[in-house]
Design a protein around this nucleic acid. Sequence first.
DNA 1: AAATGTTTTAAACATTCGTTTATTCCACGC
DNA 2: GCGTGGAATAAACGAATGTTTAAAACATTT
Lengths: 219, 219
Amino acid sequence: MAQTDTVTRILDTAEVLFAERGFAETSLRTITSKAKVNLAAVNYHFGSKKALIQAVFARYLDPFSERFHQALDELEVQYRGEAIPLEVLLETLARTVLEVPAERNSLKVFMRLLGLAYTQAQGHLRRYIQEHYGNVFSRFSDLVRRATPELPEAERFWRLHFMLGTVIFTLSGLDALRDIADKDYHEHVSVRDLIRRLRPVVVAGMQAPLPDDALKVAG
Amino acid sequence: MAQTDTVTRILDTAEVLFAERGFAETSLRTITSKAKVNLAAVNYHFGSKKALIQAVFARYLDPFSERFHQALDELEVQYRGEAIPLEVLLETLARTVLEVPAERNSLKVFMRLLGLAYTQAQGHLRRYIQEHYGNVFSRFSDLVRRATPELPEAERFWRLHFMLGTVIFTLSGLDALRDIADKDYHEHVSVRDLIRRLRPVVVAGMQAPLPDDALKVAG
DNA sequence: AAATGTTTTAAACATTCGTTTATTCCACGC
DNA sequence: GCGTGGAATAAACGAATGTTTAAAACATTT
């Protein structure tokens, strides 16, 4: 039963620990001891710690990328040249994000990893993600452009990242926030609850009126 | 000229390096060599690396906390019992945030540090901030409550954090985003530009319609 | 000018880290 | 059954980390 099962055990353990403590704060020794694998196994199977980090992301992002492309294909067929409404695009994005890690009910981990990818130094990771999954974001970005023709180019760019920030920041810091919410409001929220709450906020944010003097610095 | 100037040089250097690379990825040797002070100076003046991290935050948050309390005092006098409008509260918050680090034009660093405080492990930091500055947030939170009486308790809580996420995430990852924006839109944004763009989005987000079935889980 | 207390300095300390090496284990084809 | 190759293991390596020590330099007070 040993064989490649070692690789899986390493990945399973690493993603949880990375999500909890970050990359630099998680040592290979912690990972391998918790995974009950020999220390050298990481370097043997993955080559280096950096490569392990990338592999952890790939295991989430590869299926996500594939499914999301597929979902967008279907939408484009369905709307046949017409612009796909913003709500539909966001809904599809949310659904795909929810579907992918559903099997291991590790949505929390997935989101936390995404947050780390942004905020932790790890230049190699940003490059890796940009290189491997940049086209998915580009495609989504193009569709959002057609859904919000009233927005100036730059304004849409920034608002998309605003909303990305909202979602990733909230879901990645969820545990800490949930503790406070539980204590103050005696109300326990699931990730799905949160996404339901996020939707109207994100839509409203994207459709907010333009800032007072938006045409000041036009490219 | 040496004396306590050492402390300042350490803080100045540390905050920049922390903001660039994070806490764990920044060694005391990097800090002290760049600051041109002896390695042992950090432990001598601050006691430990953790204490240095907290000192870096205190140098921003102490003046911020004081000024913000003061600004809220003035607003409460001005509105004399009436609820202070949400826009005014957000405007005041933004103004205070902009004012504090203005002297060293290090708003970027400040924001990046706030982002790190959320996302990096560093449990001691979260505790420190919670303990020292929790009351400022509480007070602001109470005022927002009075400004948005139509929002259910929990919904307001979450939306406040959504918006916090938007701002901190965007401004803390600003450099990376700005690179993309510069390249794609040939338009250079300043932090103040971004804040101008953020305002309508944040306001719209806070005032978005309630989610479809918001009363499902009522405390 | 001597004494005192504070700050700076260089060196060492004890850990911890990622990675590598050399050996052993184990399954499979001949 | 034997030998071959991939995988697991224990041990070690070198580098880097935060912290401590003990001596030197400095400033301040008497």
